[in-house]
Amino acid sequence: MRTISVPLILINLQDDGFHLLVEIVAFGQKLLAVVDTGASRSVFDRSFIESHVKEIEHTEEAHATTLFTTSSTLQATIPKLKVGGLILKDYETVALDLEAVNQAYEGLGHPPIGAIIGGDLLLQFHATINYRKMKLFLYKE
């Protein structure tokens, strides 16, 4: 089993806790993503997906439960997704509007996010978060 170590960025939400961010690459573009252990699956920002994907499936059914809410989602395929040294081909994803999240981040002086890394990837790759080392460890067979 190969261990993939991904650096984490800790951001302070002032009196409302902390979020962990990781740098990812989708469509050849670097993005920051929130690591959300409570999210059922990973999601991408709707406007980011719409600007890169021609074939998008619209659905009213919420396919992702995250710390953010949504009323409708889009489904799309990302040809190549990189999370540190982990490379995923033809990654099926859900997109939702992260504009409110990004406005809140901007108000706190933080950079925008383009995605949320959720339980689907964290479970599949047996993720471990090491706060002392500020690393996300993923294990690929």
Rank of each mutant, 00 (worst) to 15 (best):
L138Q: 05
R46W: 10
T70P: 02
H19N: 06
E57S: 09
L136C: 08
T70K: 11
I11W: 03
D90A: 15
K54H: 11
I78F: 01
K30D: 05
T77D: 09
G114E: 03
L21C: 00
V22S: 13
K135Y: 06
L108G: 03
T70S: 15
Y139P: 00
T93E: 06
Y91A: 15
F27N: 09
I116L: 12
V22M: 10
F48L: 15
T66N: 11
I113E: 02
Q103S: 08
G119A: 14
A95Q: 00
Q75T: 05
Y139W: 10
E60Q: 10
P7V: 09
I11V: 15
K135L: 08
E60R: 09
T3H: 07
I116E: 00
A127M: 09
P7E: 07
P111H: 06
T66A: 14
K135F: 06
L108E: 06
Y131E: 08
L21E: 02
R2P: 03
T66Y: 08
R132I: 08
L122Q: 10
D120Q: 13
L136A: 07
I49Y: 02
L67H: 13
L31T: 04
A64F: 01
E60N: 14
S51G: 09
G114W: 03
H110C: 08
I116D: 01
K140H: 08
A64C: 09
E50M: 11
I4F: 05
I49T: 04
L13Q: 10
T69N: 13
E141Y: 09
E23L: 10
D97W: 00
H52E: 05
I11F: 05
I78P: 01
D97I: 02
G38A: 07
A33D: 00
I87Y: 09
V83L: 11
M134R: 15
G17H: 11
L86D: 04
G114R: 00
G118E: 06
F48Y: 13
F18N: 12
G119M: 10
M134A: 10
V43Q: 01
F27V: 12
H19Q: 09
I4L: 14
A62Y: 02
L32Y: 06
L86R: 02
H58R: 14
H52W: 03
R132V: 11
G107A: 13
A39D: 00
G85C: 10
A115T: 06
Y131F: 14
V22E: 08
L88P: 00
D45E: 06
A104M: 14
H52S: 04
T70C: 14
A26Y: 03
L138K: 02
A33C: 04
L121E: 00
Y105S: 01
L20V: 07
T66W: 07
F44V: 01
T69R: 12
F44L: 12
L21I: 05
Q124V: 07
H58P: 00
L31A: 06
